[in-house]
Design a protein around this nucleic acid. Structure first.
Lengths: 288, 288
DNA sequence: ATGATCCCATCACGGTTTGTGATATATGCG
DNA sequence: CGCATATATCACAAACCGTGATGGGATCAT
């Protein structure tokens, strides 16, 4: 059994007429002849068996049925555009290079999953590196996009998230707040974290030493859990083995770090734009 | 600017192919020729610039792009059908008669509003009456539909809601539980409420007398608020001027009443079917 | 008023599209 | 291998659709 279906072309001109208010203007906008638009309207009416519009002095006026159809038409057209965009996007091949600090890789999983749904033919390279390097690379167009950590109010890029920082020690340890303070930093954000630590401790007049540094958080854990050092991490990185120190510990308060998105100079490709949007959506705005 | 749009006809045959699994069967179902369906598939592919299907021994197999399009197609077609139904429904003229107990009229407002949205050309008559009368009238096809109140487990109709009953007195009154108990009933549900009261009080060995009865709840209010009588109402009818009595009052526990929907015998018209559905949806299942 | 202007409806025509039937091609099965 | 089944392709006729031209109705300016 064949179900009668609407002609999306007709609905599109119908919407154009609704937007512009006149048949002639709609024809202009759609690169049709005025007579074509007029006939299309009538064709739509004929197929529905309804009068949708009437002449009204200058221009036309919609009947209640016309007004009613408007909503349906809009919904159908947006759905159509979604479908078209999706099908087009799936054909887009090529590659896109994204830089991220290693420790933030896990945050990107959902965004990358969605991206792959939309652009299955797109080859996505993810490069991990230090934030300062990534910024340089993206400015040199070696990367299309880069997610970086940095101190608050740094210039450039687009802030998509702010993560509060905390001092932490092993869950069962008393903070060994000797002087100089033994500090553990892990490399991916080391440059930023080191700057933050220097500034915060410097302002408080405290000395410190780099007791340990590792490529990854897991590498640092033993040292910190054992009580050999205090670590500076984002609050989200806290886990049951760690304990955050509050202001009573005597350590200076910490600012937040910013997660920022940098784009290669020039006009971004459509997939790059989409990926940026997905990252903004899935990584950003969970905090503050 | 003209946006490229999908051809819903092509999507429909595409879906038919997906459902049946073969081009030939789809052609059968759509009253097309096999060659037509084949060409339509290819036309769809040409317009999207994608390969959607491949020959697979017996029948065909969809490519990932084909699978992807399937979801879009289904969404578009359902939206299309909604639109078509709605536009068709708006043209249906005629009249429909609905019977309800007066005190339940307010419950129907949303259902009637929706109905009028769908069938603006339909003339809807609402008749108020006692439940027993309404049942008879709907069986004689004098009404298309009737909403009635009745005791639980009465035969016939379709239960769409159960409303618990309560004894109530004026908010500032102590229950004057003398013997015989002075009872106020209001007419629209009087037949049902009287039966319930008789049964409940009878089983508990209590005497009672009809102290007052009125056409509407508002007519009863002064009598009840003044403390002259106990009233039997559905829990939803309680208002700040009334106070429900719990089991400590010594009055017997009460069953619920059922709200049931009766339809005229014979096959209902499409609008009648829709109205019944709307009533079920908006009146029913808010309780228990 | 009255002509000018703007806008919509309608018509005839030509090009394109679309469904059909016939035919060719591919695949699984006995 | 040949039969059965299914899809692809082709040529053709019918239907469809957009165009330009024309006519008619309403509004605005003079």
């Amino acid at each position: 059994m064949r179900t009668p279906v609407l002609d999306l072309n007709l609905l599109q001109t119908f919407l154009a007429v609704a937007d512009t208010g006149t048949v002639t203007a709609a024809a202009e906008r759609l690169s049709y002849t005025q007579s074509t638009v007029s006939m299309q309207l009538h064709r739509l009416e004929a197929m529905l068996g309804v009068t949708l519009h009437e002449k009204e002095g200058r221009g036309i006026r919609f009947t209640p049925e016309g007004e009613r159809l408007l909503g349906h038409a809009r919904r159908l057209l947006t759905l159509n555009n979604e479908a078209m965009n999706d099908m087009k996007a799936r054909q887009v091949a090529g590659s896109l290079t994204l830089g991220i600090p290693e420790d933030y890789a896990f945050l990107l999983t959902p965004a990358l999953a969605y991206f792959h749904q939309m652009y299955p033919a797109m080859q996505l390279k993810v490069i991990c590196g230090a934030s300062t390097d990534l910024v340089q690379q993206v400015q040199a167009s070696e990367l299309d996009l880069a997610v970086v950590t940095r101190q608050t109010h740094s210039p450039g890029g687009e802030v998509i998230r702010r993560d509060p920082l905390v001092w932490a020690v092993g869950a069962n340890q008393q903070p060994s707040l000797v002087d100089p303070l033994p500090l553990a930093l892990y490399s991916p954000g080391a440059d930023v974290f080191r700057e933050v630590a220097e500034h915060a401790l410097g302002s408080a007049g405290r000395h410190w030493r780099l007791a340990y540094s590792s490529q990854s958080m897991t590498g640092l854990m033993p040292v910190v859990v054992a009580g050999l050092a205090v670590v500076l991490i984002t609050r989200d990185m806290l886990n049951p083995q760690l304990r955050a120190l509050d202001e009573k510990s005597g350590l200076p308060a910490l600012p937040s770090v910013e997660i920022a998105l940098h784009r290669a100079p020039g006009r971004p490709s459509e997939p790059a734009r989409q990926l940026a949007e997905l990252i903004r959506e899935h990584v950003g705005s969970e905090k503050q």
